[in-house]
């Protein structure tokens, strides 16, 4: 393998790692927000739910910003094609993320409109939680990319059965992250509700997995012959069994860890299905955007590798340290 190819492969993994980081971390704060109506009935309980994520959500969202910027820097053609192709869908995500970001501050201070901001928090989290999966589903099943690397579909092209099913799967995974996190991080009545929710969401997750399998058989049968995909699938299912076992026996922290592992399994399925593509073309296989034809040059990838290798370990170190500062359960404020 030539140096440039090694770098291109390395960045496939680094970007995958960044998206896994985003999914696992922002997954729990998106998930807990979507579940807010089921978890909290009173303002004091809503406050408790928000307190459980308040110190972290900013830092968690930076994983998305960094993953996006890394995709831009390492694979600019993919970034350009996919982001412009998914224009309206991504704008919906942006509108939602804007409201989600400000809704907590506004909820806290704007006494008269608390109910509005609490709904902005829920809906602002729900929209991206669904659309992320839909977007990934589109990359997996393919989008109309032409010879000049441009997207030829419309907004509705994105809403085909396969991506919609993956959207449900993504939502289920995020909800499970949120519910297991709430069970692990809160106490009292909110924790009890969260523990009950875990099992219902597991059922939804299982249904979504079966549906995903069915649509994969229909739309992407070649995936089933890929050995690494099966390993990732086994990790996912194994992790979900872990969530079931541990949450049933009250090991909430382990259940949360196991739910996080299921996310890694899902991303494993995505990565092994796609590789070496980043976005499949439904027009012609030759138009697929791959890690080879859509990447930056060797100089840029080298510089980026040095930045990531110096920077990310430090980020992980202090993030870990700060998470430890806030370990322990969050209770209702008196």
């Amino acid at each position: 393998m030539e140096t440039i190819e090694i770098l291109q492969n390395a960045w496939f993994f680094i970007i995958g790692f960044l998206f896994i980081g985003y999914a696992v971390l922002d997954g729990f704060d998106l998930g807990i927000a979507v579940l807010m109506p089921a978890l909290a009935k009173k303002n004091s309980e809503r406050q408790q739910v928000m307190d459980a994520i308040w110190p972290f959500w900013d830092g968690n969202e930076v994983w998305l910003i960094t993953a996006g910027a890394s995709l831009f820097a390492a694979f600019p053609h993919t970034y350009a094609t996919v982001f412009s192709g998914f224009y309206l869908a991504l704008m919906l995500v942006l509108f939602a993320l804007i409201f989600r970001a400000v809704s907590m501050e506004f909820w806290y201070y704007d006494e008269k409109r608390k109910h509005i901001w609490s709904w902005a928090f829920v809906v602002g989290s729900l929209v991206p939680s669904i659309l992320y999966g839909v977007a990934l589903g589109n990359l997996l099943v393919g989008i109309p990319i032409d010879a000049s690397m441009n997207y030829g579909g419309t907004f509705f092209t994105l809403l085909r059965p396969y991506p919609l099913v993956i959207g449900i799967l993504g939502l289920a995974a995020i909800l499970l992250q949120g519910a297991t996190y709430a069970a692990h991080k809160t106490d009292g009545v909110v924790q009890e509700r969260a523990q009950k929710l875990v099992h219902r969401i597991l059922a939804l997750y299982a249904i979504a997995l079966v549906l995903s399998f069915i649509v994969t058989v229909i739309y992407l049968p070649q995936t089933l012959s890929l050995f690494p995909v099966w390993i990732a699938a086994i990790v996912t299912v194994g992790a979900l069994s872990g969530v079931y076992m541990w949450s049933k026996n009250g090991f909430d922290r382990k259940a949360f860890m196991s739910s996080s592992l299921s996310f890694i399994g899902l991303w494993g399925i995505v990565g092994t299905t796609l590789y070496p593509n980043l976005a499949r073309s439904t027009v012609n296989e030759a138009f697929n955007l791959t890690i080879y034809n859509s990447s930056s040059t060797q100089i840029t990838l080298t510089a980026m590798s040095i930045i990531a290798l110096i920077g990310m370990p430090i980020v992980i170190l202090y993030s870990f340290y700060v998470y430890r500062i806030f370990k322990g359960k969050v209770s209702i404020k008196q």
Binding site: G59, V62, I65, T66, A69, S70, F72, A73, A74, P76, H77, Y79, A80, S296, T297, T300, A303, M304, I307, A308, G311, M312, V315, Y318, S319
Partner: peptide, 18 residues
Amino acid sequence: GDIFGAPLAAEGIFAFFL
């Protein structure tokens, strides 16, 4: 993108996380 993306990514890694 070969040039412009890198500082944006570096901003995330070196600054915004911090």
